[in-house]
Write a protein that binds this DNA or RNA. Structure first.
Length: 420
DNA sequence: TCTGGGGTCCTAGGACCC
DNA sequence: TCTGGGGTCCTAGGACCC
């Protein structure tokens, strides 16, 4: 058993990932301008007026352009902003290349998101040497071999490694060892701490906590009474306490699959809503089958024109991955909870996944279950081979609603988790 | 013309059983 | 007859992350 205090963890974070990866790709294809050097951003579909900034270059950030912001607002701040579309298959390739390179330095590498990894360097010193020197070597190798820059944070646990990698960007290595916490982390505003979002920031500010240091030195009982177990968690984080393991292979376990969309027009009738639900279910069910899984729970979410969201879910008697069954469930859920308000967005989610291998079909089950499964399998194969839009259901023939809504293809996106 | 889309975990409260 | 209390399952909603 290794002493938890003696662990060495690195957090590797790609600087402006989507933008950097696109820039490298464009340069390789002969572009003369490096997108990283000009005000630029990767953005969603502008034509549909729902595009947001997915990543911005450092020059764009200087104009105040932020990730998550709507494109027209970003353009107001920065009129010359160059917007390029996302290329998810490219991002996956870059992410995989990074992951493979990191695995040369430790068998324990956790893919935390498409552009972040944790690497457990504990015990690897005898092979590669001092962690800081190795971090610099890794960083330079990534730059030379893969063409993009990263920040690497080093700490005794995942939390401090992650906080370290965010200290100063880009292309930097930082350490955040226990003795460095007071002067490197405590002066930061409390919302810079992982897991302190806007709501928690406000609650903390209300009781006079402004910095991470204030939180670290706050009365634990007070935090407990205001924030329950969450208060304890963030107090521990503020003090650099975290014992979570680097989970190699953890990303293989998927908890749920969802697909949601913002509709170009407000929907006011059931039939149109049903159609959109079907288009969402098409992609969810397909991804579910690709993962060789079935779901036990189906949920839907309605977002109205006032941007208020509500949801409804139900457990199924028998787990399924059949498009039609999930659609029937989604339709029923919708009819049960829709308040008749104007619908701006809809979402479908399946959860409590299980393997599709030994699904029991009950006596009461649909007699055509095998037929439905065979149909789904054929459709999946054709879509795989010839593209998603070749086959679609008759209801979509009027082209009012796209036959398969939103989302990114299953295989394109590695499954990730936001918990440490 | 105005805030995306994909995930995770936690908690409160109701239903139901013993 | 009316009033527990604990445990578990389920659902809705909220918070966070990238």
């Amino acid at each position: 058993m290794i002493d938890a205090g003696k662990r060495t963890i690195m957090h590797i974070d790609v600087n402006s990932a989507f933008l950097s990866w696109t820039a490298v790709y464009e340069l390789q294809r002969g572009a003369t301008v490096d997108l990283r050097a000009i005000p630029s951003a990767v953005g969603g579909n502008q034509a549909e007026r729902r595009g947001v900034i997915l990543a911005a270059s450092i020059p764009a950030k200087k104009y105040g352009v932020k990730t998550g912001e709507v494109i027209w607002q970003a353009k107001q701040k920065c009129p010359g902003l160059v917007i390029v579309p996302p290329n998810y298959s490219l991002y996956l390739k870059c992410s995989n290349a990074l992951f493979e390179l990191l695995q040369e330095y430790s068998p324990k590498v956790q893919r935390f998101s498409i552009d972040e990894c944790f690497l457990d360097y504990t015990g690897m010193e005898i092979h590669f040497g001092n962690p800081v020197e190795v971090a610099y070597r890794i960083k330079e190798r990534i730059k030379k071999e893969l063409g993009f820059t990263v920040n690497i944070g080093i700490g005794r646990n995942k939390l401090t490694a992650k906080m370290a990698s965010e200290l100063e960007k880009p292309d930097k290595v930082h350490t955040l060892y226990p003795e460095e916490i007071p002067y490197k982390m405590w002066s930061l505003p409390v919302e810079k701490l992982v897991m302190v979002g806007p709501k928690t920031k406000k609650k903390l500010n209300d009781i006079g906590i402004e910095t991470i240091g204030d939180l670290a030195n706050a009365d634990l009982e007070l935090l407990k009474s205001r924030l329950k177990s969450y208060g304890v968690l963030i107090w521990q984080y503020a003090n650099g306490i975290d014992n979570s393991p680097v989970r190699a292979g953890y990303h293989l376990m998927m908890k749920g699959i969802s697909n949601s969309t913002t509709i170009k027009f407000d929907v006011e009738d059931r039939e149109t809503a049903h159609k959109i639900l079907l288009s969402l279910v098409e992609s969810v069910a397909q991804r579910l089958r690709k993962a060789r899984s079935c779901c036990r729970v189906v949920s839907i979410e309605i977002r109205n024109s006032e941007l208020f969201s509500y949801s409804h879910q139900r457990r199924l008697h028998v787990p399924t991955n059949v498009t039609n069954e999930i659609y029937e469930a989604a339709k029923k859920l919708f009819d049960e909870c829709w308040k008749g308000d104007k619908i701006r967005g809809l979402g479908v989610r399946v959860s409590e996944l299980c393997s599709d291998e030994f699904i029991q079909t009950t006596m009461f089950d649909d007699a055509d279950i095998e037929k439905k499964k065979a149909l789904d399998a054929v459709i999946d194969r054709v879509r795989e081979k010839y593209g998603s839009y070749l086959i679609f259901r008759g209801v979509f023939a009027d082209r009012e609603v796209p036959p398969i809504a939103g989302g990114v293809d299953a295989e394109i996106y590695p499954v990730m988790t936001s918990i440490l």
